[in-house]
Design a protein around this nucleic acid. Sequence first.
DNA 1: ACCGTATGCCAACACCTGTTGACACGCCAT
DNA 2: ATGGCGTGTCAACAGGTGTTGGCATACGGT
Lengths: 193, 193
Amino acid sequence: MTSPAPSTHPRRSDVTRAAILRAARERFATDGYERATIRAIAADAQIDPSMVMRYYGSKEGLFAAAAEFDLRLPDLSSVPPDDLGKVLVRHFLARWEGDETLVALLRAASTNPGAAERMRGIFTDQLTAAVATFGTDPATTARRAGLVASQILGLAFTRYIVRLPPMVDTTPEDLVSWIAPTLQRYLTGTPPD
Amino acid sequence: MTSPAPSTHPRRSDVTRAAILRAARERFATDGYERATIRAIAADAQIDPSMVMRYYGSKEGLFAAAAEFDLRLPDLSSVPPDDLGKVLVRHFLARWEGDETLVALLRAASTNPGAAERMRGIFTDQLTAAVATFGTDPATTARRAGLVASQILGLAFTRYIVRLPPMVDTTPEDLVSWIAPTLQRYLTGTPPD
DNA sequence: ACCGTATGCCAACACCTGTTGACACGCCAT
DNA sequence: ATGGCGTGTCAACAGGTGTTGGCATACGGT
């Protein structure tokens, strides 16, 4: 699914590498970093555990490769300013409803310092950059991005990790209706004092 | 600190039990369930690992005892309806700024199914009950409670677990100012659609 | 003073973990 | 055809894990 690097020749082991990565993402997503064992991942990919080591160096290296993630935020400058909240919630829900990578990262970030730092980077860099594209006071963008992250990650945490019944049962569109105004205010609202 | 059960005689080992629990809460809070080892907890409490087993049966039993938690929500019926959001955010921040038990539970809930279920119970029972005290449509209380939980847990997750810089640096009162309106709308706002 | 029992420590078990090295097979260019 | 190298398997290591049983000791009620 991800475009290969065109510079190097395709390796014969690419299918194996992909199988490992897919199994790793699934295990990390459901079990978290420490409970996901290399042996279990290798078994899912139907290869020997030592192959994982050869191709990814270590468990940390495997996780680093499996948890590569891009929020793929749309260009917010071309969105009607009043629709920002709605667009963002819808985008995030769609983004990780179909990709377990972020769930894996979310679970792992709770216990693994490296995963936490990666999550920090994603939401600091990508989200802050997106928030900065439209013109609110630059002094407040970091805080606005942090608040958006808090509501977005809280949504993900309660829906996909803790699985709070009301958050699991509510349809995506109802969630958008409820939560969009929150993001809208965090993004464009006047700061309280 | 917690009042002892008055029915049974105080045991000679109560101080040891308390030391174990305190060490366990700290380890679970900083390391999560799987990384927190019984040996490390015992070392912190300066006793033998086997004592932990005798007093709490197993690692799961120890966690169950250490992660006992009460949100201690105030009686919301006596709060001015317009102050509900402010009161709640302030309460939650104060509640776990001084008690690492909830951070322990939060970290553990990501990877340990039992911890996740306990967290589900806490926020389903205690929070839903509190939300139900004032008179909105009973059909929407569960959803309102879930939304409140999503923002509150998102705040905790970004501030105490991932440690997103903007969320760590912002003062509690500024957080209250920003987030209170969100909870206010989740609690008393008219349902969208 | 005495004896049962609670408290504590020590050593060990059985298992699982990430990780490593040696060995076999098969593809591919020469 | 024949090398070399990429791919894969097997077995093992060293360390850490939760957990268990046995043994010393000191308390507390009688």
